[in-house]
Design a protein around this nucleic acid. Structure first.
Lengths: 342, 342
DNA sequence: CTGAAAGCGCTAACAA
DNA sequence: TTGTTAGCGCTTTCAG
């Protein structure tokens, strides 16, 4: 493979000029420019990325950290980020943490060592001190799906509390009173916020908040199944279950079906996320929609703004996305159903 | 960040020795070894990957090319590959081609330029000449989910023809006679093979193969929807539809439901892949299962064998994985149902 | 077992 | 506008 020196030699210029053609084309005269470009093409020259990265001390990769690539939410975010990154000539380093903070920290170290050009952290479990470390490293980053209020950083997220509020309120509105909630990992801010929204809606409606209607899950389908089983055993079986995400809602639906009950006649179920499966299962799942693909796009654009103008971006943006209630059939109340599919 | 020179200085040795500690520990005396290791730890030293890559002319990234990250099949493969890569200290460069050959080729070039340590190509659309180019570049690679018989390369794939045969035969066995097939992209080898299996089963059963029962799809859900719509309009409506993958099967099911028909009473539907949604929809989808996560693991292991012993691996492996028929409810014949989700 | 030194290919400051 | 040259940090011969 030809290198820059060979191009320079054959084009009859210095390596600096060749480098300039690539990096500062405005500072090269049209004629030499043409000369060099032709030689490059003739020799099928491609700059060595390692050498370039070494000299610049940064790479053209975006580190993308996701908690669980098997949750259909994240491939959508990934696609959003990737679509922008490709345009910019960057590529994606995929890091799947399996909701494990240690793993996530390990990946973070790796990405910092590899001097990723930028970072997108989705539903990150990192602590403030980790974030501080990223900032110190100078690598631009954006957080998606997590609002760390106390931290000054670029973020794109939805209003989870609002979402939890909206969907609980909807359940109340259509007549449910005994409403249970299966939370995500209770240590996660998002889970807490969804729950706060849930409680707020209950409180406003004058419905007592019952501890035993609050079941702990972990965002995986199985925990929804288990959580629902637990709820179904209760003497005062809930009228409806609000699961902290769609995966758990689907698990809950399975549990309900397995118990010989039907949805929504015997018990309503709603979720959060609006993953694509939500419209494919029966009954279709009422849920809160977040435009995840778009959030990926937005995050990536924001990231590149920071990569490209490192200096002037000392002000962080917190981009708030309004969640949207998708009323389908799993919550009951047939006449309010809006069909989504096709 | 400390560099190798600083470590060498503080440890009172040469940079070469420090490098040796990292790369050829067997050639360093225990005492200096200890000395150097301690200094490294004290200075919190991490080798600069760019410099290393530049010197070695290869990186510690695995390029992973997938046709469509939104198809739940591929995140599973990705996870398989990633799980192995992480163990080996490699990371994943994710490339999503959207089934576009040009895009795939673009990514391939990028990965070759970036001197990826290895490549995993899933359901690749590349041509023989592209494969030849990879081989020439010396970058080890493994293909997943595509069998290029004529090409000598490492491959992990399932027997698509067998799968198509098995599932069609099952449909025949339980009484269906008019069986239609919605193909994947007809230019893809896998689609062709599935179709050949379908035709073979029909032929063996003495059922005529009808051109108009062969509808062209493209592996996306919508094409399944459209394909089924087309089939439902026919005078002699098919008894069952074999869709080339689960996504299309789900699309077909939607179309059937939209037409007011029921599955499997009016018409049976079967798919291919056994993505996780298959057990979540109603009726549960009869399909052909491939252990995709495991295939990812196998492919990655094979890849690292090649990365680690570049010389001695001049023999390519073609790893054939037997597909498995998962009989559920969408094909009809209740009494043969085996439940999967518990 | 260890050290000196020559690259790996590129960028950018400095000079012209 | 262009060229010279000093790094960037590491690996690996080649000597010792």
């Amino acid at each position: 493979m030809a290198n820059i020196r060979e191009v320079a030699r054959q084009a009859g210029v210095s390596v600096a000029t060749v480098s300039r053609v690539l990096n500062h084309p405005e500072s090269v005269s049209p004629s030499t420019m043409k000369q060099v470009l032709e030689t490059m093409k003739r020799l099928d020259y491609t700059p060595n990325v390692f050498a370039r990265s070494l000299a610049l001390n940064r790479s053209s990769s975006i580190g993308l950290i996701v908690p669980n690539i098997l949750n259909p939410l994240y491939p959508q975010v990934a696609k959003g980020v990737e679509d922008i990154a490709r345009q910019k000539g960057y590529n994606i380093l995929l890091c799947n943490t399996e909701e494990d903070q240690e793993k996530e920290r390990g990946y973070l170290n790796m990405l910092l060592e590899k001097r990723a050009g930028g970072l997108v952290l989705t539903s990150s479990r990192l602590e403030e001190s980790d974030i501080e470390r990223i900032r110190k490293s100078g690598v631009p980053f954006v957080m998606v799906g997590r609002n760390m209020e106390e931290v000054d950083a670029n973020m794109v997220f939805t209003d989870y509390q609002m979402g939890g509020y909206q969907i609980t309120q909807h359940l109340i509105e259509i007549g449910h009173r005994r409403i249970a909630h299966i939370t995500g990992n209770p240590h996660h801010r998002e889970s807490l916020e969804k729950r706060l929204g849930y409680e707020k809606a209950l409180r406003e409606a004058g419905i007592p908040i019952l501890d035993h209607y609050l079941v702990e899950g972990n965002n995986e389908m199985e925990s929804g199944y288990l959580g629902a089983k637990k709820l179904l055993k209760m003497e005062e079986r809930p009228h409806a279950i609000f699961a902290g995400n769609d995966l758990m809602a689907i698990g809950a639906m399975e549990a309900i079906k397995d118990s010989g009950l039907s949805i929504p006649e015997d018990i309503g179920v709603v979720g959060f996320d609006d993953i694509n499966i939500a419209t494919l299962i029966q009954p279709r799942l009422t849920t809160i929609s977040q435009p995840v693909y778009k959030m990926g796009l937005i995050a990536a654009r924001l990231l590149f703004e920071n990569i490209e103008n490192k200096e002037e971006n000392d002000f962080c943006q917190k981009i708030f996305i309004q969640p949207k209630l998708m009323v389908r059939k799993s919550c009951g109340h047939e006449d309010r159903v809006r069909e989504i599919f096709n």
